[in-house]
Design a protein around this nucleic acid. Structure first.
Lengths: 370, 370
DNA sequence: TTGTATGCGTTATCAA
DNA sequence: TTGATAACGCATACAA
């Protein structure tokens, strides 16, 4: 019994025939927006015929005729990064209630693949794009924008392009992270930035330098290092390099949670204790961070809401392509857990961090800082 | 500068005109499968014209004409469950190299939504479906199968339906988990099963009973409890109920990793120590489990490979709908980490678990077992 | 090897 | 209120 029985798919013709009307009439009866042009009696007859036959409109034919598709594309760099599924859900939650469908594509951070996927989306008549793969230099997005494609960026932006964007308030988040560490008494804080070719990487790195200066802490370029990708591996490699430089830091602000997890790997292999020797802060608050050893202090970004807001903005844009490209920063919150603590040997009574900077301590196993 | 400039999309007519040929000729020249019918010279001319105009075939029109779409649908219950993104990537990895696109839809475990999404996929002419939402009683899948829809189930099956399926070898995985605990000296092991309306839930629960009997351990129905959903919350609730029953178990085999994480929550709130008081084993080996406190012992399922194999099987099925519905079990492996240890007070010298069952121990904080 | 004609299923314009 | 007709963009059977 392996052969499924084939079955003919009923078309509008079949419905019209069954109801004894013309296809045009059937079409009008089935479409809520034109149903008013039809007598209630025939409308009912058509709808019952459709019901009886199990008729489902063919969206392909409809798309060809109307050049619309009730579909938007969602361009994701890597679905296995836990940050993105909640964004997907947020997007879907508002789009679906509006009758839209969502086409999710993965670019795997590959430019060529991105181009191909977006071409594929466009050839399927998607009415707009929500793009999570933006880079600071992104000719493709410029080109799409110039072609009049309705777009909203999410999570990352392209500052030079007037495309609306929905992102977390990265700068404030990083400032909160640095402030927290400063209050704990840290004076030499490192930053493992994300890729500086992305706005998230660059904005967080800039905010880090600003925050460090604002708190009167060490502003040493050697304390900032870039990860080529937002990954655990790259985070681990960056921290190893930093430790090899022996720059005597006691805390790390990681570009995101995955980079922070890479730090955990280095701690395990090098015998460093967190937060005893080094404190770490992540970014995003991806799931299950509270169950890590130690639980990771991080900056929570409202990803679901990011997705929902981006979807709303895209709908607005599809409705009225001429509206100004307003961008939105959603508020983030520092979530303090167990990966941050005073630096080794810190005098615990010092709560007034800004007034009396605590002395540097050679207690860090990596190297003395002075 | 908020107004993107509109831009006309070139059609096959435009290309043909530019190349000085008829649309039919242009069509043949652009399609690698028919290009041979065309003189090399005109083919070149057409292709250059297409290139110059930036022509992209309209897949909607092509789909309408050919009633194919180079697209398959992937039906996921919940993308935020970390088990699914790797499956998605696996599916995409083989489908894309074959020129296919993947439409991912989320059902949120809701039957009505599932029906709507699948209808939407079908109305878009998808050529097949990879379904990860199978339930033991699933009229919709039966109906689709009877309509001749090309389908492959993934992760879960519907035993009564001759639809090919790709799943992990759940029974062997559970047996390995129970065997590991038995070797450690546990004699009363509980099982927090997943929903028994899914094959994964039922198969694992059955395998648990079998394994427990095979090892001569306590086969007490009170030690098995069903979680209504595969979630941390349901896992926590189930363990709380079990503890309230005071059935004196020293280990838990969780239906999956999320349920196991729910156990961690209960440990934290009740002061139980894992693995000191109770050992826990999960299922799936989702990411970052090695960084938990304690690192979770679990059964690793090759999700990427599951997705890839399902995609291959679907392609086979699209090519030849008549082929028999072979199903595949992919091997799983027990990954021993820190959440499993001998039961409290266990005499450590006992390595010969099967020959001399160790005595039960009242050391479990919840209740004495004898 | 190329051109002609037709139709995929639907909606929109026009006429009745 | 309903029907006839055309067209969306493409691929293909048939003719040349």
């Amino acid at each position: 019994m392996t052969n499924p029985t084939p079955s003919p798919v009923p078309t509008l013709r079949d419905v019209a025939q069954a109801a004894g009307v013309h296809t045009a009439t059937a079409s009008r009866a089935l479409n809520p927006k034109t149903r008013q042009q039809i007598s209630a009696e025939t409308a009912r007859r058509v709808m019952r015929a459709a019901q009886a036959l199990g008729y489902q409109p063919n969206s392909v034919a409809r798309s060809l005729k109307t050049s619309r598709s009730a579909t938007v594309g969602l361009v994701i760099p890597d679905l296995t990064n836990p940050l993105f599924p909640p964004i997907v859900r947020g997007v879907e939650s508002v789009l679906e209630s509006d009758g839209y469908n969502v086409w999710i594509v993965n670019t795997d951070n590959d430019e060529e693949r991105e181009r191909a996927k977006i071409e594929s989306l466009r050839s399927r008549q998607v009415e707009g794009l929500i793009v999570a793969t933006a880079r600071l230099d992104h000719p493709l997005l410029r080109q799409l924008h110039e072609q009049g494609v309705a777009m909203v960026l999410i999570n990352r932006q392209v500052p030079d392009l007037p495309i609306p964007a929905v992102t977390g308030d990265d700068a404030t988040g990083v400032a909160a992270a640095v402030g927290h560490l400063a209050e704990l008494g840290h004076t030499r804080i490192a930053h493992l930035s994300g890729p500086l070719g992305t706005s998230t990487g660059r904005v967080r790195a800039q905010a880090f330098r600003h925050a460090v200066r604002d708190h009167g802490l060490a502003d040493d370029p050697a304390l900032v290092i870039e990860c080529a990708r937002w990954s655990e591996e790259d985070g681990a490699a960056a921290l190893r390099e930093l430790l090899a430089r022996t720059t005597g830091f006691t805390a790390v602000v990681a570009g995101n949670d995955l980079i922070a997890l890479g730090c955990y790997d280095v701690f395990a292999e090098s015998g460093l204790s967190c937060p005893g020797d080094i404190s770490v802060i992540g970014f995003n608050d991806m799931p299950f961070l509270d169950k890590l050893r130690p639980p990771l202090t991080t900056v929570a970004v409202p990803h679901h809401e990011l997705g929902a807001e981006a979807a709303r903005m895209l709908l607005d844009r599809i409705d009225d392509p001429g509206r100004p490209a307003r961008s939105v920063l959603l508020p983030v919150t520092l979530v303090v857990r167990g990966s941050t603590a005073p630096p080794p040997g810190h005098h615990h009574e010092a709560a007034d961090a800004t007034a009396s900077p605590p002395p540097a301590h050679p207690g860090n196993a990596t190297a003395p800082s002075t």
